[in-house]
């Protein structure tokens, strides 16, 4: 994809690295270059927004599970058993 406007960083390059940006896995200089591009390029910002929304949606759907209340007690009981055998 290319928006046709002149940028220091090409649109296709930005979109291929959007997940690295979201995951905070690129170095400071690269991050700044991508941020500059997103600030001035509406189509890329829109695409970035969709990816960010998807990331948040998926993370939200997969949160909120709690370990069963008796799990710690079961682990403790088994360890006590093992120690008694030693």
């Amino acid at each position: 994809m290319n928006c046709g406007e002149p940028h220091d960083t090409d649109c296709s390059e930005v979109l291929s690295e959007v997940w690295l940006f979201l995951d905070r896995e690129c170095d400071k200089d690269r991050r700044a270059a991508l941020q500059t591009h997103l600030d001035e390029c509406h189509p890329c910002l829109e695409q970035f927004g969709l990816e960010e929304h998807l990331k948040a949606l998926l993370a939200r759907k997969c949160g909120g599970d709690y370990a069963p209340a008796d799990l710690k007690a079961r682990i403790r009981a088994t360890i006590v058993e093992i120690r008694a055998e030693d």
Binding site: R76, I79, V80
Partner: peptide, 24 residues
């Protein structure tokens, strides 16, 4: 060193994240 209470604290601290990871 055999301090069960110390290990229980580690279990308490990380059983939630490990359970979430395993469940997923």
């Amino acid at each position: 060193d055999g301090d069960m209470r110390a290990y229980e604290q580690l279990v308490r601290r990380y059983q939630g994240p490990m359970y979430r990871l395993a469940l997923r």
